[in-house]
Structures are given as C-alpha cells and as structure tokens.
C-alpha cells in the first residue's frame, strides 16, 4: 500500500515535470506560423524543418560542439582539483581551513552583471579571449567551490577509521585514495560531476562575454532566433530539446554511481 502511494506520487510529479518539456517538443516539431496560430495537443503538420536547420548549419551545430568541449574541460579541472582539496577539508585541521572553506563558496555570490567587464579585461590581458580554455577556467569560479563542498559532505560521511586502517596496512596515500576511498564516495563524485556539467552547460553570461566566434556556446547562438520579424519559437524549441540530450546522456552514465551508493568496501 505504501509502495503504491509512493509510486503514484512519483508518477504524478513526473507528469507535471514533463509537461513543459513536452510542450517544447511539441513546438519543436511545428513551423513558427503554426505554433502562433493554433492550439494543439500534438503536432498535426509534423515537420522536422527546425532540426534539419540546426544539423545542416555549421554556425548552429558548432555551438553544441563548443559547449561540449569547454564543459568537459571544466568538469575535469573541477574534479581533479576539488577531490584532494575536499579530502583535506574533511580530514585535516590546518591554518585558515574554515575561512578558506567558506571563502570558496562566496565566489558563487557575486551578481554577474557588473563583474562581466573586469572578467573580460582580465582574460584579454592573458590573451585568452575566444578560447575554450577561458570559458572552462572562468566556470571554475562557481563549479570548483560547489565540487569541494559537495565532495567534502560525502567524504565526511566516511569514517576516518577506514583511512587509518589503510595506512596501517601500508597503503600509500595515492593508492588508498584511488582504490579504496574514491569507490566509497562514488555517489558524491557522480552527483558532483553532473552538477559541474549542468552549471557549466547552462551558464550564458560569462561564456558569451569571453567568446566571439571560435568558442561561442550554444546558449548564446540560440539568441540568434530573435530576428527583426520576431522570435522563431519552433527553432528555439528544437535547439532547447537538443540542449537536453548531452546532459541526459551524462546522467545516464553516472546513474549507477548514484543508484548503487554506499558499499562499505573492504571493511
């Protein structure tokens, strides 16, 4: 009985969650004139025109490639730097640890509007404008603190005795970290990787400010659907549907780490 109520509740939530996305899919399969003219539950004059336009125009599909490129770069940098740092915060007392930990989070608190100009100046000084690396590095500003905080939370859930026993057994730190510790917190690593991907993927202001043509992200290219004659809703909806796909694939790949959770390893 309880199981049934849960499942029904969950299905109800998912229906609500999917309605706007279904509407976007519905729009993406219709022409702009059709969208603005009639209300319809499903596309009656189904057309793939919007999708064909995105896949045949290099200025469109290169946006996806650029986004995937710098987002992957950002996820790798964020995880590689945040993993040891989170371990340090969860296991050690050191000079300034608490201040540094909170300072990291303060980097997510600045309203972007005015900060964009100094960002542009800073990155042009280094000659990084319009490179994927610039966007990946600037996104570290909000993703690395997030990664450290989420990972620290999961690491602190692992008893310290596990570390001590491994060291007594003669494990070196890198070997212990890679073969024992990381499998224990893989739920946390999975969720962190997804969040870094997600926040970098949807971020628009920094990515748009730091790029001109070569590394322009998809979210910025989408603003081209606004023209003198108004907005091309169908094309925008198709582009929106396609932006969901890579992230859905990412969560599909990390799902096992999220779902299997905490196995107590060798203890």
């Amino acid at each position: 009985m309880i199981m049934q109520k849960r499942t029904l509740g969950l299905i109800f939530y998912f229906i609500l969650l999917l309605l706007p996305i279904y509407w976007m899919l519905n729009m993406s399969l219709r022409t702009n004139a059709d969208i603005m003219r009639v209300f319809t539950f499903y596309p009656q004059n189904l057309t793939l025109e919007n999708y064909i336009k995105i896949f045949s125009d290099p200025t469109w599909y290169s946006g996806y490639l650029n986004s995937i490129y710098y987002v992957s770069m950002n996820v790798v940098i964020s995880l590689v730097t945040a993993l040891p740092a989170a371990y340090a915060f969860s296991r050690y007392n050191f000079l300034g640890d608490k201040h540094l930990f909170f300072w990291l989070l303060t980097n997510r608190m600045a309203p972007p509007a005015v900060f964009l100009l100094p960002f542009f100046q800073l990155y042009s000084t280094f000659g990084l404008i319009d490179t994927h690396f610039a966007v990946a590095l600037s996104h570290c500003l909000f993703n690395v603190p997030l990664a450290v905080w989420v990972l620290e939370g999961f690491m602190s859930g692992v008893p310290r005795e596990i570390d001590e026993m491994a060291y007594i057994d003669g494990y070196s730190f890198p070997r212990f970290f890679l073969t024992i510790f990381m499998p224990l917190i893989r739920t946390g690593i999975g969720v962190t990787a997804f969040f870094c991907f997600m926040f970098s993927w949807v971020e628009l202001l920094l990515a748009r400010t730091l790029t001109t043509t070569e590394a322009k992200p998809i979210a910025a290219i989408m603003t081209r659907t606004v023209s003198a004659t108004g907005l091309d809703w169908g094309l925008l909806a198709a582009a929106g549907i396609l932006t969901i796909v890579p992230g859905a694939l990412v969560i599909w790949f990390v799902r096992n780490h999220l779902a299997k959770g905490f196995a107590m390893g060798r203890v």
Binding site: L17, A219, A248, W252
Partner: peptide, 27 residues
C-alpha cells in the same frame, strides 16, 4: 526505475535559463 527517475528528474536543469523563460511564455 531508479535510472529512469534520475534521468527524468534532471531534465529541467539542463535547459539554458533564457530558453526556460521563453518556453514558459508560450506554455
């Protein structure tokens, strides 16, 4: 069920924020 739920639940997060506003205008 767990895999499907995870993928479904993540979908709204993956849409760029300006697109979300635009879709809700029509919605």
């Amino acid at each position: 069920g767990a895999s499907l739920s995870l993928v479904l639940v993540a979908l709204p997060l993956l849409i760029p924020w300006n697109v979300i506003g635009t879709i809700w205008i029509i919605f």
